[in-house]
Design a protein around this nucleic acid. Sequence first.
RNA 1: CGGGGCGUAGCGCAGCCCGGUAGCGCGCCUGCUUUGGGAGCAGGAUGCCGGAGGUUCGAAUCCUCUCGCCCCGACCA
Length: 577
Amino acid sequence: MLFSKLFIPTLREAPAEAEAISHILMLRAGYVRQLASGLYIYLPLAWRVMNRIQKIIREEMDAIGAQEISMPGLHPADIWQKTGRWSDIGDEMFRLKDRGGRDMCLGMTHEEIITWLASMEIRSYRQLPQMWYQMQTKFRDEARPKSGVLRTREFIMKDSYSFDRDEEGLAASYQKHADAYHKIYERCGLRFYQVQSDPGMMGGATAHEFMAPSPAGEDTMVLCSSCGYSANTELALSVSPQQKLSVGATLCGCPGQAHSTSVGDFEDIPTPNRRTVAEVSSFLKADPSCFIKTLLLIGKEGPFLALVRGDQELHEKKLAKVAGNFRPAQKDEVKDVLGVAAGFIGPHNSKLRKIADFSLKEGIFISGANKEGFHTKGIRPDIHFEAEWHDIHVAQTGDACAKCGAEITIEKAIEIGNIFQLGTKYSLPLKAVYLDEEGRENPVIMGSYGIGPARIAAAAIEQNNDKDGIIWPQSIAPFDVEIIPLDMGDKEIEEIAAAIYSNLSGEGLEVLMDDREERPGIKFKDADLIGIPYQIIIGKKGLKEGIVELKARRTKQAERVAPSDVVKRIKELHSVL
RNA sequence: CGGGGCGUAGCGCAGCCCGGUAGCGCGCCUGCUUUGGGAGCAGGAUGCCGGAGGUUCGAAUCCUCUCGCCCCGACCA
């Protein structure tokens, strides 16, 4: 393909609205343009990348026996009403009415539609299992679209659905998808992890996400390099390190400290105007891990206390699983319920229900005295307060793995795929049932599996770039090779460029030739920006010595190769990958 | 939805505080010279200063409202 005939509007400077690296580079290198918040136009280069990614996905889906179909993006409301999601989902669903006044919505996902199809067509166990997938546009009225193509309001998704007669079948379909996803991401050249995730509103018990580590990611994952435990922080368990004793730690007096018995005594100490853990901690010269952070929350059955250690953050989702839905108490509610201002509340001498993090089970602590201007030291669990013990903190760096005890690492990541075991959440309300050998009616057991091709592209850029631009993994680059003839007026250069171009194309490679009448500097800069893995540079200097240069975009290393050997050499490099 | 920031030429920005005929760099057009990492010289074009209303003799600048975009948080089936 000729550069001069392709629309590649590169930008010398990054548009002000872009922040994420992938966003900046996609704009600068002429891959995308923004129509409105969360809505992007994919220009020729980006669309080629998307097509390559989708091709890889299709090949791997087909390989596990999934069948491609296509469902509408516009849905009637009544199916969504049957599963309850019409009302469960809020503003994130685009809703509209057709001319007849019927409620409709733009599909955010297709569980309802595919289950409707299964309910109409599947009768017998003989028809199971089935795996159906599609590449379809999804619409979600995101509260905050961000980071370019990473979080948009309209996006293409490969979504597949499995239908099995029982849980064993589901487990097999689920595993097939997990395996296929591994192959897809490997082929796309991404670094990634499979982590446990929260099924959330999707329903079902088991779910995993595929995560591409990147600082631009919105998710945080917990990884244990020792036992392999990996989970999204939205549910990851961890064990906080032991209480830290420093100079001032004598005040909380952990067991084992020489002077702990005397100074660890239960006693109120004045802490005027110090409310937060940070304030009291520096005032008393005691490590934050010596404190109990006491939070007043209002649950369905009234107010209760949540206790985490001073160096921890409360994990609201974990707590909600134990305590049901709750909300934080307002300032005046704290006064009303406890008779003291927030900042001075503690778990001892309080009759409220208490849910405490495991880390507070051992040690001696400082907490609010339930008395304005005072904190209490020497608080011992089970002696000075009783609580229900759970893991209700957010896992953080320095914590130990809940499975094996090794130190965990915490990493930001882009969610590039997810898989859910749905069970009967959709088949029951939509009556997708089959008859077994005995003629009994059973609900179909379902799974749901998604991949966002645009996120794969963005993650690939986030993981592969340098100061000059994108460095595409070979498999998903818009082209395999870019030919850069430095002087389009020169006959010899043009002829050799044309010959190499046709030979490479003849080998089935996708080739971009920068045939523009531009200065060398501009061609080099654009080539690096666009990020095609190999550049063949043809200039007078080299030809005088009988060579052209073959440069790898990633390393910037140039090999001097005879024009007649270039095609062979490129093929060698390709076969390695 | 809460907090913050920004809308001035195609892109990046200055001007706004302190009102007085809108500027810089890059890009674009023409010509000549150049041609291995975003060329040089000369000439040229380009603005509803996001929109509406108000204050004023006069508004990019001050006030009110509104729309859009970005960032942090909440949310994210």
